[in-house]
Design a protein around this nucleic acid. Structure first.
Length: 317
DNA sequence: GAACGTCTCGTGTCTCGCTA
DNA sequence: TAGCGAGACACGAGACGTTC
């Protein structure tokens, strides 16, 4: 089977297909499904289960509760593409819980965690079926075969999708606090390791205004590493994270110029901030707009991206 | 042995430069 | 011009090494 490697599963060979970023749209040529907030994973199933991360690492030992996936999948040897998620509050995927799971190395702790916060494999594509490479086949055909091959149950679900009504679906997902939507061309083949416009990642982006309280110098060709952000909480500045992307060389020069005009001040937060290597603290006079995916439980920004200075805003606002 | 700091590894975005 | 890879950056938290 698997042709190219003499009948064995192509373990650690397939890189997952990637998506480009996009905006909500409606098209009869696309299907729309929930974008799950978890670890991208390929599951190799051939009388056992092997889980491979996006970077081709074997993450099977970290999720023992998924070892039995192969019992629920027919037409083996088979390879599923999907996402490992850990349900959090209200059943929504919790990325922080998943990270806590993924970092465990002690087998005892892994077993305990598997009982307390069990992971679920959300399957959304079928790449090999009965040992045959079906990646060149169109997505709608692979989706059909996925429905036939997989018996959903504990720890294994099939990602449902809708046809057309992409904007309505996106709005509904946003209301439910989900990360976003994936739009996939019905006729698209699976392009391993490639980032293709056949798949579009439409994320629910949040935006806010934050006070620039300092910065870190960059390395390599960059002069500005990251801006250090804060907001006022009960009259005191609170740390909200750093943003190190979203500005090009021109904006970087302009920001550095503005920062150099400000007086250097002592650290504005009551306690030292972990993770800051070479902070330069400045007067909290500049306000900037930042897009971000979500906030961590302690109020820090996840995946922040700088969008511009707000000359019209005062820090106190 | 406790506390602290650094490294590692998972996820991601974005810009820049090279190549087809 | 589009696609792709490299190299910046972000987050959390366990593992591990060092210091006291």
């Amino acid at each position: 089977m698997m042709g190219e490697n003499g009948g064995r599963l192509p373990v650690f060979q397939i890189k997952p297909m990637l998506a480009v970023a996009g905006r909500p749209f409606d098209s009869p040529d696309f299907i729309y499904e929930v974008k799950w907030d978890g670890y991208r994973c390929l599951a190799y199933l051939d009388r056992k289960t092997v889980l491979q991360s996006r970077n081709l690492l074997d993450i099977t030992p970290a999720f023992p509760e998924l070892a039995g996936l192969y019992h629920r999948v027919g037409m083996q040897p088979a390879v599923l593409d999907g996402e490992i998620v850990v349900p959090g509050e209200k059943g929504r995927p919790s990325f922080s819980r998943l990270q806590a799971r993924g970092r465990l190395a002690d087998p005892l702790k892994i077993r305990q965690a598997a009982l307390q916060t069990p992971a679920v494999f959300v399957a959304f594509d079928l790449l090999y079926c009965r040992g045959e490479n079906i990646m060149p086949q169109p997505l709608h055909w692979r989706k059909g075969l996925l429905q036939e091959a997989v018996q959903p149950g504990d720890n294994l679900v099939i990602s449902s999708f809708i046809e057309t009504h992409g904007t309505t679906f996106f709005a509904a997902c946003a209301r439910q606090g989900l990360e976003g939507v994936m739009a996939k061309a019905k006729e698209s083949p699976y392009l391993p390791g490639r980032r293709s416009s056949h798949w579009r990642k439409i994320r629910h982006i949040r935006q806010g205004e934050f006070i620039i309280v300092g910065y870190e110098p960059g390395t390599g060709g960059r002069r500005l590493g990251a801006l250090i952000l804060g907001t006022y909480r009960q009259g005191r500045l609170a740390y909200r994270g750093k943003v190190g992307t979203g500005f090009d060389r021109e904006e970087e020069q302009m920001l550095l110029g503005e920062l150099k005009k400000l007086k250097e001040v002592p650290p504005p937060f009551g306690e030292p901030v972990p993770g800051l290597t070479r902070p330069r603290w400045v007067e909290p006079r500049l306000v900037c707009t930042v897009e971000y995916l979500e906030q961590t439980p302690d109020g820090r920004l996840r995946h922040p991206s700088y969008r511009g200075l707000r000359w019209d805003k005062e820090p106190g606002e």
